[in-house]
Structures are given as structure tokens and as C-alpha cells.
């Protein structure tokens, strides 16, 4: 989604949530923009607490929140009619048919009965459960139940969907499929999505924006492309060979002489300070001149993991 088309769908100002002496959210100032936003952090970082605050399910200790232009506390019912939500907890009424479950919640979110019935079926088709829609929830796999939770969240055509750990309990293949599905829902149906996860690679794979939390503190927030990137230099790993002797040292000397910023750890050299292509060319030349052997030469990119490690 282009920056120009992005709009702020939710924002908080000094949002603080305390439970006794525990600070679950510590003066969080953040803006969530349209598209898919990943709420990342370890268990206990405050992700679910922030989602509850955005839904207006819990009054913050202090601070403000605004979602879709509404105050979650004073305008909660009006807001929640426009928001879909899928909780993390994998417990659903086992004897209910999937289509009945989705239809009922669409009705509770305000849709007329006939419309809810149609959209329940359509939503289940969209998440890939069209053929399974009359099965009872108790007979479905964890992956199917996660899809049913997604279907009920989108059935009422919300402007914003909040998904709390939507890939919880899924195997890698199911996880990938679920993330692809979430991306498609956002891209093709213009539904804004906020998903929480403690798996950073998940967020990197599907999200446009990231809000990173750690122990209730805001670590970082913004477009994913701004927070991570592939312009972090190059890693060059050499093979420690006996002949010619000192080849690794020779490569290091040559690269330093060429004005390249360099950190060395054994036979691994982390190069930086210049464009990636230039670094690769210089590294190749230095290795060739020294008669060294390359084990690995790769562009180094900053990941969300680096973001958290830096913050820590």
C-alpha cells in the first residue's frame, strides 16, 4: 500500500495500563495505519492488553486511544460494530456448525438475519472452508478452527480486524497459508488488519507496519521497510586455509586499505560503509588478490530480531 493511500486507523497517546504493581502498557504512543499491522513481542509484552484497550474492553489506567475516529471507552458499542476480532484462545462451541457460528456472530455484530446467513457462507468460502461449512466445530482441526475464527471476524465486513495470535497452534505450512490468507483479505478486500504474534518472521512476511512491544514498552513502530532493511552491509566468511598462509589477514588489510568499515570475528568479516554492490566487488577483488577462498558472501539485512536485540 502506498504511503499516500495510508490513513491512520488507530492511535494511542500515553496509553498506560497497570495491574497492581505490574505495568502492562507503559505510556504507549503509537499510530496504526491502514494495511496489515503486526503487533510483535514476547509473551507478556502487552499485545493482548493493547488489543483489549483498542476494543474498549478495558479502561486504561491513563492515556487515550482512538480507533476509526472513535473513543473505545465512551463509544465502544459503535466502534465494535465496525471491528472484527478473533481471540487467541482456541476454544469454540464444539457442537455448533461452522456456518451457524459465523452467522450468529455476524448477527450479534448487527447484520440482519438473511444478510448474516449469506455472508457467513461467503466468509467461509473466502477462508477456504466452503466445503466444510456445515461441519461442527468440534470435528475440525486446529487449522480449520483458526480459519473459522478469521471468518467470523470478517463476516460483518468490518473496517478493522484484530487478530490475536492467529497462527497459534498451526504447523509451518498452515501458518504460511494463514498469513497468505490474511494478506489477501487486506489487499483484495481493503480490510485493515492488526495481528499480534510473538514470531517475528511471521510479521516480516505479511505486515506493512510493525508495532514492537517489550514488557509493556514500545520498542519501535512504523513501516516495516523503515524498521528493517537489506542495506546493512555485507558479511564475508572465508575458509581458513593453510596455503597461502595469512590469506584472511591479507583480505582484511586490503579491504581496510580500500576504506571499507570492517569488523572481524575469526574468519568472518562484516563489511559496511559503502553501497552493497561496491562492497561485494571490493570483497571479490580482495579475495582474488590474496588467493583466499570464500565460504559465504551475503548481503546483511536488519531483521526484527535485530531490532529487539538493539532495544534490549
Amino acid at each position: 500500500m502506498s504511503d499516500a493511500a495510508e490513513t491512520v486507523i488507530a492511535s494511542t497517546a500515553a496509553l498506560t495500563q497497570r495491574f497492581g504493581s505490574t505495568v502492562a502498557l507503559d505510556a504507549i504512543d503509537v499510530q496504526l495505519r491502514s494495511g496489515v499491522t503486526g503487533l510483535v513481542g514476547a509473551n507478556g509484552a502487552g499485545k493482548t492488553t493493547l488489543i483489549n484497550a483498542l476494543l474498549g474492553l478495558r479502561a486504561p489506567t491513563s492515556g487515550l486511544a482512538k480507533v476509526l475516529g472513535l473513543d473505545p471507552r465512551s463509544q465502544g458499542p459503535a466502534l465494535r460494530a465496525r471491528v472484527g476480532f478473533a481471540p487467541e484462545r482456541d476454544v469454540l462451541p464444539g457442537e455448533m456448525r461452522a456456518v451457524d457460528f459465523v452467522r450468529h456472530l455476524a448477527q450479534v455484530r448487527g447484520l440482519p438475519r438473511s444478510e448474516a446467513r449469506t455472508r457467513a457462507s461467503d466468509s467461509l468460502w473466502l477462508v477456504g472452508l466452503g466445503e466444510e461449512r456445515t461441519r461442527t466445530l468440534g470435528t475440525m482441526s486446529t487449522g480449520q478452527r483458526q480459519r473459522v475464527k478469521l471468518a467470523q471476524a470478517i463476516a460483518s465486513d468490518p473496517q478493522l480486524v484484530l487478530l490475536d495470535e492467529p497462527t497459534s497452534g498451526l504447523d509451518p505450512t498452515q501458518r504460511s497459508e494463514m498469513l497468505t490468507l490474511i494478506g489477501e483479505i487486506s489487499d483484495e478486500h481493503s480490510v485493515n488488519v492488526v495481528l499480534s504474534s510473538h514470531l517475528l518472521n511471521e510479521v516480516e512476511s505479511v505486515c506493512d507496519h510493525v508495532v514492537a512491544l517489550d514488557a509493556g514498552r514500545l520498542v519501535a513502530s512504523g513501516p516495516l521497510s523503515d524498521l528493517i532493511g537489506d542495506d546493512e552491509g555485507v558479511t564475508l566468511e572465508l575458509v581458513d586455509v593453510a596455503e597461502p598462509a595469512g590469506s584472511v589477514d591479507a583480505v582484511e588489510r586490503a579491504l581496510r586499505a580500500a576504506g571499507i568499515a570492517l569488523e572481524r570475528a575469526g574468519t568472518t568479516l562484516r563489511l559496511g560503509g559503502l553501497e552493497r554492490d561496491v562492497l561485494c566487488d571490493r570483497a571479490r577483488d580482495a579475495v582474488a588478490d590474496a588467493g583466499a577462498r570464500i565460504r559465504r558472501l551475503e548481503a546483511r539485512r536488519r531483521s526484527l530480531t535485530d531490532l529487539f536485540e538493539t532495544a534490549a
Binding site: 476494543l55 474492553l57 465502544g76 458499542p77 459503535a78 465494535r80 460494530a81 471491528v83 476480532f85 481471540p87 484462545r89 456472530l105 450479534v108 455484530r109 448487527g110 467470523q152 484484530l162
Partner: peptide, 9 residues
């Protein structure tokens, strides 16, 4: 939790 995420209070 699902009910409380709807207009219901």
C-alpha cells in the same frame, strides 16, 4: 470474549 468484542457490553 467474542460476545464482548461486539456491540454488546
Amino acid at each position: 470474549p467474542l460476545y464482548l468484542s461486539t456491540p454488546l457490553r
